[in-house]
Computed example of a mutant assay.
Amino acid sequence: MDTAACYLEPTWNAGRDFAQREIAGELVMLNLLRFRAIADYSQSPELAPPRPIAGAAAYDRYVAHTLPHLRKSGGDILFRGEGRPFLIGPEGERWDRAMLIRQKSRGAFLAFAVAEAYLAGIGHRTAALADSRLLPRVELPR
């Protein structure tokens, strides 16, 4: 598996394109997460625990910090599960966790993502992740 490219934040173009998408109503974000063996708090030393912790534990701290802000913005976690090898997919590709996050609207998500109270804990996410994917999805009409 190629480890040269890691994706932890949206590119400017991806962020602009998402902000300009016309999305009516709810959306669901598919999150695929790969954790560091040991969390790296070098970018947010003020959030670092007294002793080193695993990336998964740092991500759990991020979720604990984020969930009240997510819910206040109209969103919630629909599913959070442990990763396992693909049934269909590349043998060498692995994700430690998958999550589905519901948000009431594109605008609510964008406001949530830049809220100061939420951003105060984002260092846990940065410390936790070795790689990630975030795929916004809109439900098809029935």
Rank of each mutant, 00 (worst) to 15 (best):
P141S: 10
P50L: 11
S73P: 08
F86N: 08
R137W: 13
R61P: 00
R61K: 06
F109C: 00
S44A: 13
A108F: 05
D2I: 15
P10W: 01
D40G: 10
Y62V: 00
L140Y: 09
G89T: 01
G123T: 10
G89W: 12
Y59G: 03
I53N: 02
I23N: 05
P90E: 12
A98T: 07
G81K: 00
T3Q: 14
P10D: 05
G75W: 02
A120W: 01
Y7N: 12
D131A: 14
G83H: 00
W12V: 08
Q20R: 11
R61Y: 02
E139T: 12
L70H: 00
A57S: 04
I23T: 06
G81A: 09
E82S: 09
A115F: 15
I38F: 00
R133H: 11
R133W: 10
K72F: 01
D17K: 08
R84K: 07
S105T: 08
F35W: 08
I77N: 03
E91H: 06
L134W: 14
A127T: 06
L27N: 07
R16A: 14
E9N: 15
Y7L: 12
G25K: 11
F109W: 15
V28F: 01
I88D: 00
T126L: 10
A98R: 09
Y59K: 05
Y41V: 03
I101F: 13
R133F: 07
P85K: 06
A108H: 04
G81C: 09
E46P: 07
I38H: 06
R133N: 08
A48G: 05
N31V: 03
P136I: 04
R61S: 04
L33W: 02
A108T: 05
M29V: 14
T11A: 14
L32M: 15
H124G: 07
G107A: 10
G55C: 05
L135Y: 01
D60S: 06
C6T: 07
R133I: 09
Y62I: 00
L30N: 14
L110P: 04
A111C: 05
C6L: 13
G55E: 02
A113V: 02
G83K: 01
W95P: 14
R84M: 09
